[in-house]
Design a protein around this nucleic acid. Structure first.
Length: 614
DNA sequence: ACGAGATGCAACC
DNA sequence: TGGTTGCCCTCTCG
């Protein structure tokens, strides 16, 4: 059987027809795929082929009417968007857990291994005809699941209604026989342990562990015994910022003040108890405010790091920002030289402010003199972004950094130099954040773009691989503020992350999910209060304050500002408020009267409710 | 009820 | 090694 191929000769001096040069990658099965090809599709294909041929050279143009998958360009199946729903492509790895797709493949012993590239170590997969199967991975690679070297990935598949259950002693994952699984069938969507991949028990009992137990633990503050999950929206400011929120920080001494940074470089200061006392300072930075931190000895100002390449020290009363360092004194010279600041932390013991840029460098500033100390140190791969810095709360000499080179790295502040990191924690993709645990400082929690949170149980123990991996869907496209899982500063070991739902995770287990049906946007930015049972979350341009249900004091909206109250909220938060400026460049968010934009008035219900309160 | 665009990373050569 | 291309899980505006 042959395809309907149309060959168009070009009127050029090209030597010969080169259609044979093209690798013939498809086999007979494609033929079945021709059946129905509608005209539009034919036209599309013709256009594609012609332009492709133009690009290549002067070769004859071959038009073949194969129906191919939009995702992988192979025949035999169709994937991609069918109307509004996305059909998974069986050849693509699962979007959620990123487990690769293993085709039903028996490696040729004459070919190098598909995985480790070692000749002679062929990648072999056995499948039995019934629904039970065995999968044997390459022995040169650490186990794909538990990451333990030498523990080869041996899988027994048992058919069940969830797909195929994979049974082994040290992990708990589902797989689907001969082609892994797709996003729709990912076991992490339904796993009761919320995608936790338990690790083998790790106790080191080495001398460092002993030192830790003897010397450090007695100094660690008592754990707050009980904690309450703030699970109800108490108050919110809708469209507070003019661009999406990038970071949140609670005031270190004033319990009711929340600071928020946005993509435009503006800084919000909000007293969420006196709900309407809020301001957005517009002249703090020129673009994205990436991180902020208080110096708790002077809580009237906050340090901020921005993509405009400056470190700011902003007065919260006046909004006046003092620039402590500017990495782009010469102005814009093109993207290859423009420096942006991402990671930021304060080391109180040493009186240092630490910032890191998008080229892999760390800068130290003396917080008394505001002067830069020494030269910048390359702490991540040259040219890669360093997105996070965190000083160890117990050992001031320890610094944790993370960045786009897929690593989180531990450093000794006393000997900072390129390549001298104490430890490098490998990740599958970009590491969004890395934090030491707040009380003991001995654990590490990281969030990576490979859709996994990782917990390392002891910095004194084995750091070759994480103690736990938690699959959590946060690999969104670039338009969301990156997710960063954080420890609860009050309770250990508890941490949380969220998507549309809030998820508290302790020792890898899901404790609670709290949701608010009126929040229709994803909330990637979250901050737990250092003392109160309060959670602040930033979602798009809005900020929400969560409190526990039983204690919650419902704050009534006092004015027409964009405040909603949980439970009484209108069905749609996205309603347009009458008179609200549509212009997102509106800096200070004073609410205008009911003048402009008559064509875009609010829905009747919301307009009524606003009027009543004016 | 659409579509565009703002964007960052990774894969590909 | 740089330059180009493509991208599913958003959100907003027109």
């Amino acid at each position: 059987m042959s395809f309907l191929n149309v060959v168009i000769e070009r009127d050029t001096d090209s030597e010969e027809s080169s259609s044979e040069d093209e690798p013939e990658d498809e086999e007979g099965s494609d033929a079945k795929a021709i059946e129905e090809v509608d005209e539009d599709e034919v036209v599309e294909r013709v256009v594609e082929e012609v332009s492709a041929a133009k690009k290549r050279d002067k070769a004859p143009i071959t038009i073949s009417l194969k129906k191919v998958c939009k995702v992988c360009k192979r025949t035999g199946h169709e994937a991609g968007f069918k109307g509004a729903t996305y059909v998974d492509c069986p050849m693509k790895p699962c979007f959620l857990c990123k487990m690769p797709v293993y085709p039903n493949y028996i490696g040729c012993p004459m070919k190098p291994c598909f995985l480790c590239k070692m000749p002679g170590k062929s990648f072999v997969v056995y499948f039995i005809a019934c629904d039970l199967g065995t999968y044997i991975d390459c022995l040169m690679k650490p186990c794909f699941l538990c990451k333990m070297p030498g523990k080869s990935f041996v899988v027994y598949f048992i058919a069940c209604d969830l797909g195929l259950l994979l049974l082994d002693t040290h992990y708990w994952v589902l797989g689907t026989g001969n082609e892994g699984h797709t996003t729709m069938t990912c076991p992490h969507r339904i796993a009761t342990e919320h995608g936790v991949i338990p690790a083998p028990h790790r106790t080191t009992h080495n001398s460092l562990d002993y030192v830790f137990e003897r010397q450090l633990r007695p100094g660690i503050a008592k754990i707050k015994p009980a904690f309450v999950i703030p699970d109800e929206v108490n108050c919110a400011v809708i469209r507070y910022h003019s661009r999406r929120v990038t970071c949140l920080e609670f005031h270190p001494t004033n319990n009711n003040i929340l600071l928020s940074g946005d993509k435009k470089g503006q800084l919000g200061v909000w007293d969420y108890v006196k709900v309407h006392e809020k301001i957005v300072y517009g002249n703090v930075h020129g673009c994205i405010l990436n991180n902020m931190k208080f110096n708790s000895t002077n809580d009237g100002t906050v340090y901020t790091a921005s993509s405009d390449g400056t470190v700011g020290c902003t007065d919260l009363e006046t909004g006046i920002s003092l620039s402590l360092m500017n990495l782009n004194p010469g102005g814009w010279q093109g993207p290859s030289s423009w420096r942006m600041l991402y990671g930021l932390d304060v080391n109180l013991e040493k009186g240092l402010l630490l910032v890191a840029d998008n080229f892999g460098f760390l800068y130290l500033l003396d917080m008394r003199s505001n002067n830069k100390i020494g030269e910048a140190t390359l702490i991540h791969k040259k040219g890669s972004k360093v997105v996070g810095l965190h000083c160890n709360p117990v050992q001031p000499d320890l610094l944790l950094s993370c960045g786009n080179d897929h690593f989180a790295r531990i450093w000794d502040m006393r000997q900072l130099q390129a390549g001298s990191s104490l430890c490098n924690l490998a990740h599958g993709r970009v590491v969004n954040s890395a934090y030491f645990s707040p009380q003991s400082g001995s654990k590490i929690l990281t969030t990576s773009q490979d859709n996994r949170l990782r917990v390392w149980d002891s910095i004194f123990g084995n750091l070759d691989s994480p103690s736990r991996e938690i699959v959590h869907s946060h690999d969104f496209n670039r338009h969301l503020t990156p997710f960063r899982a954080e420890w609860d500063p009050k309770v250990i070991p508890c941490l949380f992350v969220l998507r549309n739902a809030f998820t508290y995770i302790s020792t890898g287990q899901l404790i609670s999910e709290v949701t608010e049906p009126n929040i229709t946007t994803i909330s990637p930015v979250n901050k737990l209060h250092p003392r109160d049972d309060v959670l602040a979350s930033g979602s798009s341009r809005s900020i929400f304050i969560w409190r526990p249900k039983e204690n919650s004091e419902i704050v009534q909206p006092k004015d027409e500002t964009k405040i909603i109250v949980c439970g009484r909220a209108e069905k749609k938060l996205k309603m347009k408020f009458e008179g609200e400026s549509d212009d997102s460049d509106n800096d200070n968010f004073t609410i205008k009267g009911k003048n402009s934009k008559s064509g875009k008035s609010a829905p009747k219900s919301s307009r009524r409710s606003l009027k009543g309160k004016r």
